[in-house]
Design a protein around this nucleic acid. Sequence first.
DNA 1: TGACGAATGTCAGTCGCTGACGTTAATTAC
DNA 2: GTAATTAACGTCAGCGACTGACATTCGTCA
Lengths: 188, 188
Amino acid sequence: MRWQPDGRGRLELAALELYLEQGFESTTVAEIAERAGLSERTFFRHFADKREVLFPGGDTFENLIAEAALAAPVEFGPLDAAFAGLEAVGVFLKERRSFAQKRQRIISATPELQERELIKLQSVATKLQESLLERGSSAPVAGLVAEVAVAVFKTSFETWIRAKNTSDLTTVLRSSLQELREATALSQ
Amino acid sequence: MRWQPDGRGRLELAALELYLEQGFESTTVAEIAERAGLSERTFFRHFADKREVLFPGGDTFENLIAEAALAAPVEFGPLDAAFAGLEAVGVFLKERRSFAQKRQRIISATPELQERELIKLQSVATKLQESLLERGSSAPVAGLVAEVAVAVFKTSFETWIRAKNTSDLTTVLRSSLQELREATALSQ
DNA sequence: TGACGAATGTCAGTCGCTGACGTTAATTAC
DNA sequence: GTAATTAACGTCAGCGACTGACATTCGTCA
């Protein structure tokens, strides 16, 4: 075989390493390609741009959430259904915490990458909204709840990533939901 | 005087027009500068990049929200304080609806610009969080509520922009908050 | 008048990214 | 088993976003 296997994976690994070593901005796509033993042009065949290499998996993430939300018990309201979706991610990330931490360190240091992450979360919200619509929510409620659920996810994820002990994202999610309910309850 | 006045303003106007006429991606910074009677280099002295020209005002927006949230009555809980901040934006945008619509048409057509908009909203959330902290909220609650408030703002703003009749953003915000409270209330 | 600073211009250069075209290797068809 | 097809990669040329360095013009103020 002329080519080493899994060129795409090698590019992802090389990019992660170089972004950690030198920072995102001072790393060149040519450098990444070189470390992966490929050409720059090939990098752009695998990834739309220099940032996308840090966001693999495409829409598997969104689909995971959407499906789990859809599969939630019928008696669940939209918010609980949405959270059933988010908890599926919690399970998914359980084994990948250290990778997620490395990745997040890079993203936190780079506004460009934060933008990309935010738009990914936005598409999660959109997908989630569709699920809630299918479950019978009205359009305004589905949009609102999806957006709010993702907002809660953001804060929970951040807490989970920063935690010293290896905590459970699902647990954090549940307590955030609890806090949300308290904060939205009308003060009596 | 050698230079026409308000170069920056001319660049903003030229950019808005060209983005509307030809789309964001097929518009060149050189074109914008030319229409404004300036050089490309000068464009980049006024704006960090090609997108930023659509987001003028810097952080006046965030400050407006943060201050209004801070000025809310002491007896308000964090969520209501946050909404007091958002309503200040509602007032601010009242007279600028048609401009906001043009701008939003461009943004909606361009993922790159959506990314930028999202990170602006993120910095609003951060600023808002600081206000809530000053009001005495705990860190987790402030973060959560700020994030959720901005999420509600996003859906309200979208509704307001799309409305056929010239509705009031503040009104939309209030009804969204009401919907949020219903959605988070435990189903009895 | 002359020194200084603010806004702009010019130029060269790097880097992200794309289109066009050619090459190699595995697979599939016959 | 050979030929056609396809998938993955390489090379090259080129555009456009963005930056650094240096020069210029104009208003201002001593």
